[in-house]
Amino acid sequence: MSAKTNEPFTEEQWLKFVQQKQLKFVECQDCHKMSVIPFAVCTTCGSRNITWKQASGQGSIYTYTITAVPPPELQAIAPYVAGVVELQEGLRINGIITGVENVNSYPADLVGKTVSIEFLELDRKSILAFRLNA
């Protein structure tokens, strides 16, 4: 870990980034393993030469669901689309999918549709989301 950084390679830091409306991942500078779950020592090659990278925020829907029965915290936006997005970098991440029309009438297969990152603001918390590209 570089001595100057005040951005430790921890899950807590990843969560802070999300609150700052940034999607980041760690990359090993030696074997180039990438992970959305941060590590300070590479879990593949053991290197300590790790860095935070900013995700491009561009990707496509790998899979999704339309949730009619939401958890209490997401009642305000239900029914909503939740998905797994495959980022251009090749990593996958869970997020809310926005910009889907006629959610209630269950639109045709959205798998493979391209999306761009955005962050929703709910109860003063930032939530990772992706908007369906027009």
Binding site: T65, T67, A82, G83, N94, V111, A129
Partner: peptide, 18 residues
């Protein structure tokens, strides 16, 4: 990584289904 972005348990098994 899952719960805050609306991935409920039925939701995650729905995503396998999709």
């Amino acid at each position: 990584y899952e719960i805050p972005v609306g991935a409920t348990f039925p939701g995650m098994y729905a995503m396998f289904g999709t």
